[in-house]
Amino acid sequence: MRIDFKFLGGFLGIILLYYAVGGVVFTSLYFIFLCIFVLAVMSVFFFLRKVSGKITPVRPEYEVFDTARILIQIYNDSRFFLPHVTAIMNRDEMETRSIGPRRKIQLAYNAYLTHRGIYEFDHMNLEIRDIFNIFTLTKLLHKQSIRVYPKIKDMSHYAFELGVGSAGISASRSPQKDPYNTRELRRYAPGDSLKRINWKVSAKQGELYVRVGEQTKGMDFLLVIDMNESIYRLDPDGLKEEALISTALGVSKMLIAAGKDHKVIINALERKEVEIRRMANFNALVEYMVEHNSVGRKPLHEFMNEKTEIFKGAASIIIFSSDRGPDLRHVVEKVKDKYNHITWFSCIGRGGQEELEGITLLEIEDI
């Protein structure tokens, strides 16, 4: 509650003069000020109960760099004229209006969206004042949220090499034993891939059997997305982080549109792996990006060093990182062999810009 202390100071002075001096003038002023005070208190608390507000986004979903239009509807459910009501957003006064009895008004607030995520408008409230402008009471509005999606970059003008595919993967020079080379079988369980069903054994046994741990073909595309918190050091506004995610999603969308299955591995606060086989999988990946920012703690070179064997099954590896530092460069060179191809997107280049054999170096452009 805010109070006009000038009025209170004048009222206090009139009270002192009324008791000290008396007389018709000060007695009249005393009762006039007292009536004003009582009416102000009664009216402001009355309207606090009768006035309500509602926040309504024009659209529930937006993209980065859109301008969200938020509508604020204010209702006066009383039978009396409301002289002053002010909409406040993030401590900034939007507009002061009056509302007739049983009426409503509508105000608009525009918010420029610079980052993906869930925007919550929870600092919006109404300030209600009495007819004498002495008391101001604040009424909070129910918070409203909108989802802001990444602006997915069109990557149709890029081409990615497939590598040698499954045949080359099976002949990989990796000295490790292939963990997928077992032939053990078990009964089919819901959720198992149909590609792993052993149809000959299933026909013989009269029920479905799947190969345990067998990979029938190599992975064609593997996307590695770095969501380490260090990316926010590249620019003060976080636009390069948005550009990295936009580019990675653009590549994934391009692949799924071309009917190419792929796997996405994300170096976030927790390791995230997504199999992209249909548009529904891609949409789930986009939703994940809406709800998560780049707050990972582990450097990408440590992340990739943990499970290097996963790259042995990929014919084409596409990496999205903030830069190309020497530690990460060393890991990428170690992953590269003659049976795969690597495309490496980065926001900035570092540690040398010379082309590496079998590795395509590309810059992530601002969105």
Score class of each variant (00 low, 15 high):
35 C>S: 14
329 R>W: 01
32 I>K: 03
94 M>I: 13
180 Y>V: 06
89 M>E: 01
299 P>Q: 01
173 R>N: 15
142 H>A: 11
12 L>Q: 11
156 S>Q: 13
268 A>M: 04
152 I>F: 04
61 E>N: 03
132 F>P: 03
122 D>Y: 03
116 R>H: 05
354 E>W: 02
95 E>G: 02
365 E>D: 14
100 G>R: 11
211 R>D: 13
255 L>P: 04
199 W>R: 09
54 K>Q: 13
115 H>C: 09
169 I>K: 11
298 K>S: 00
20 A>W: 12
326 P>S: 11
266 I>H: 01
337 D>I: 01
260 K>R: 14
217 K>Q: 14
67 T>F: 08
45 F>T: 14
52 S>A: 05
220 D>P: 06
69 R>L: 10
15 I>A: 07
128 I>Q: 10
228 N>P: 07
212 V>E: 15
363 E>L: 14
262 H>W: 00
302 E>N: 15
91 R>C: 05
291 E>Q: 12
217 K>I: 06
310 I>N: 03
261 D>Q: 10
241 E>W: 07
220 D>W: 04
257 A>L: 08
44 V>K: 08
165 G>E: 13
189 A>L: 11
105 I>N: 09
279 M>R: 13
289 M>G: 02
111 A>I: 11
197 I>W: 09
181 N>H: 10
342 I>D: 03
154 D>V: 08
348 I>M: 09
357 E>F: 11
118 I>T: 11
74 I>G: 05
36 I>Y: 04
300 L>Q: 04
111 A>E: 12
142 H>Y: 10
14 I>Q: 12
334 K>V: 00
40 A>I: 10
78 S>I: 07
53 G>H: 02
31 F>Y: 15
345 F>G: 04
212 V>K: 13
23 G>H: 10
129 R>D: 03
18 Y>T: 07
201 V>K: 09
121 F>D: 05
218 G>A: 15
359 I>G: 02
177 K>T: 13
108 A>P: 00
364 I>G: 01
142 H>V: 07
280 A>K: 14
132 F>D: 06
289 M>K: 02
193 S>N: 10
157 H>D: 15
325 G>S: 12
267 N>G: 07
118 I>N: 01
283 N>Y: 12
116 R>M: 10
121 F>M: 05
184 E>W: 03
123 H>N: 15
8 L>S: 03
37 F>D: 08
3 I>S: 04
365 E>K: 15
65 F>D: 15
22 G>H: 10
3 I>G: 08
365 E>C: 07
336 K>G: 00
63 E>S: 08
28 S>N: 03
96 T>A: 04
364 I>F: 07
330 H>F: 05
58 V>S: 06
20 A>P: 06
343 T>K: 01
147 R>V: 04
161 E>Y: 08
80 F>G: 04
297 R>K: 15
100 G>I: 07
323 D>M: 00
14 I>V: 15
189 A>T: 12
331 V>M: 12
40 A>T: 03
327 D>P: 01
311 F>R: 15
77 D>I: 00
75 Y>P: 09
144 Q>M: 13
56 T>G: 06
326 P>Y: 06
24 V>Q: 11
358 G>C: 10
292 H>R: 11
179 P>I: 10
344 W>Y: 08
241 E>S: 14
248 A>N: 09
